[in-house]
């Protein structure tokens, strides 16, 4: 793992302004930010490790535990909310038997909510990885997961 992190680090200058881009690249590589990785980043940039953690934990994008193979992001935008997003989230939680922020035990799905994915006109919606699912209903949610949403 150290080699993978070092390879990323060497492509950036030792400048604090690169902290967030480095965290993004490391997470893209490892799937999450381990404490070891953060220590290495801190060391490389000469930024105290408490501050690396402070920055990483501030932003919703970063995670400190491994995530599932597929990331579900339920939109909690206003348009989605008034058109039933809470019921969509409830339904997914019910179907996958996990809460928001959790990962299924088979590491297949991680369930998250995002501020707004900007598809308000097609609300309520969610994203699985980079695919957007629009105009959802609880019934549609069941269909998506019975087919294995990640393959679509």
């Amino acid at each position: 793992m150290h080699d993978r992190i070092d390879a990323i680090l060497s492509s950036y200058g030792r400048d604090r302004a690169n902290l967030i881009p480095i965290l993004q690249s490391v997470q893209a590589e490892l799937g999450y930010l381990s404490e070891e990785a953060m220590l290495r980043i801190a060391d490389y940039l000469g930024v105290p490790e408490s501050q690396v953690y402070g920055v990483a934990s501030f932003y919703a994008q970063f995670r400190f535990t491994p995530t599932g193979r597929n990331r579900i992001m339920v939109c909690r935008g206003t348009a989605c909310h008034v058109r039933g997003a809470p019921r969509i989230l409830d339904e997914i939680q019910q179907v996958l038997n996990i809460r928001e922020g959790e990962t299924t035990s088979d590491m297949e799905y991680t369930l998250e909510t995002v501020a707004c994915i900007g598809c308000c006109a097609l609300s309520p919606c969610m994203m699985i990885n980079r695919e957007v699912y629009a105009k959802l209903t609880p019934t549609k949610v069941r269909e998506v997961f019975s087919k294995g949403g990640q393959e679509q």
Partner: peptide, 21 residues
């Protein structure tokens, strides 16, 4: 990196500088 408050201009600048927004 996912922080609504970074739309606030001083928070946005902090974020560009690699700090908490």
């Amino acid at each position: 990196a996912g922080a609504f408050v970074c739309g606030e201009e001083t928070a946005l600048l902090a974020s560009i500088e690699g700090r908490r927004g």
